[in-house]
Amino acid sequence: MSLIIAYIGKKGCVMASDKRKIGYFGDKQNLKTLEEELYSGAIDNDEDFLNRASELGISIKITDDANKLKVVGNTIRGEVSTKGTFETRRRRIYGTTNGYQIIELLGSETESRKAGEKGIVIFGNVYAKQLAEPLIKRKVKASQSLRYMGEVFESILAEVASKTPTVGDKFDVLMQQPVFSVSEAQKHLNITIDNDIKVLTKFRQELTEQLVQQSLAIDMASKIISKGDVGRVVSIDGNMLHVQLNDKTQAMDGNWKQLAAPGQNVLMFTESDNVKIGDKVVIENEDLCLKKDKSSLKCDIILCSL
């Protein structure tokens, strides 16, 4: 759902991109039908796209706020991505003066890497590229300044957007003009890209850890004890009680790390002066208390079932 046009030459690099992003939800076969019509050019505007999706029972969400271009070091990075069941496939172009590289990524793993010196590179779906290529041949001239070329690219994007919903009508244009020879450009690109992929790898690792933690939190939250026996008093020191957990109860901290396993002791506090060794500790109506007289107890732990 993208169209990115990049020029790389001895003057520098300029890229232009739309900002469209489309989310789908519905029957797979009907979705396939909708995509075939969309990419064949049978649907040529947003209204018809929404109507056809409705006819097929497909829910879609169209937004025009995706940032597909980014300045990284002295290069511009353009990216189109496709989310699969388990991984996101990314296709990136990094461009600077006198050089560019095209990278294929699955997750954060590099599947292919190709280098070039100069030219015009187009990323996008087949139909959008078919619309853009003749416009580029007609409108772009090598003698044009980078700034003017960026304006031409933007006009091409606008014309393509008027003929297919796969390209939005809002655009970004970025330009970089560092002084690099051909060999310097590739050295700079290698360093920049390697560092950028490391950032992606770290981001994915952190995201995975967050998802694991969220999954754990959901699982443990369902195990929080709201009713029943949790243990018995085994030691008393003023208002501090040592409570031995029963064989079905464990104590967790706020990050869902186990502080005490079944059979181990935890610290609780009481304001009652009528506590005896062996008194049972329970949770009733989500309140922690002594079973015998409902005296309130406090603790800094989360009591969960196994």
Rank of each mutant, 00 (worst) to 15 (best):
residue 2 S to W: 00
residue 3 L to S: 11
residue 3 L to T: 10
residue 6 A to F: 06
residue 10 K to C: 03
residue 28 K to S: 13
residue 34 L to P: 04
residue 34 L to G: 09
residue 35 E to V: 09
residue 40 S to I: 01
residue 44 D to E: 08
residue 46 D to L: 13
residue 52 R to Q: 03
residue 53 A to K: 04
residue 56 L to P: 03
residue 59 S to E: 14
residue 59 S to M: 13
residue 61 K to I: 14
residue 66 A to R: 14
residue 68 K to S: 00
residue 75 T to F: 04
residue 82 T to Y: 12
residue 83 K to L: 13
residue 86 F to C: 05
residue 88 T to I: 13
residue 97 T to A: 10
residue 98 N to R: 06
residue 107 G to C: 07
residue 109 E to C: 06
residue 110 T to M: 12
residue 111 E to L: 14
residue 117 E to V: 15
residue 120 I to W: 01
residue 123 F to N: 03
residue 124 G to Q: 09
residue 127 Y to N: 12
residue 131 L to I: 08
residue 134 P to G: 05
residue 142 A to V: 09
residue 146 L to S: 01
residue 146 L to Q: 01
residue 153 F to L: 08
residue 157 L to S: 03
residue 157 L to G: 07
residue 159 E to D: 13
residue 161 A to C: 05
residue 166 T to E: 14
residue 171 F to G: 03
residue 173 V to Y: 03
residue 176 Q to G: 04
residue 177 Q to T: 15
residue 180 F to R: 06
residue 186 Q to F: 03
residue 191 I to L: 00
residue 192 T to S: 03
residue 194 D to A: 13
residue 197 I to K: 09
residue 198 K to P: 00
residue 200 L to M: 14
residue 201 T to I: 09
residue 202 K to V: 09
residue 204 R to Y: 11
residue 206 E to P: 00
residue 209 E to S: 14
residue 216 L to P: 07
residue 218 I to D: 14
residue 223 K to I: 04
residue 234 V to K: 06
residue 236 I to S: 01
residue 238 G to A: 00
residue 240 M to R: 15
residue 241 L to C: 08
residue 243 V to H: 04
residue 245 L to C: 08
residue 247 D to M: 01
residue 252 M to P: 06
residue 255 N to W: 01
residue 257 K to E: 13
residue 257 K to Q: 15
residue 260 A to F: 09
residue 263 G to F: 01
residue 266 V to T: 06
residue 271 E to G: 12
residue 272 S to H: 03
residue 273 D to K: 12
residue 276 K to W: 06
residue 277 I to M: 09
residue 288 L to D: 06
residue 288 L to V: 09
residue 292 K to Y: 05
residue 298 K to M: 13
residue 300 D to F: 02
residue 301 I to K: 09
residue 306 L to F: 08
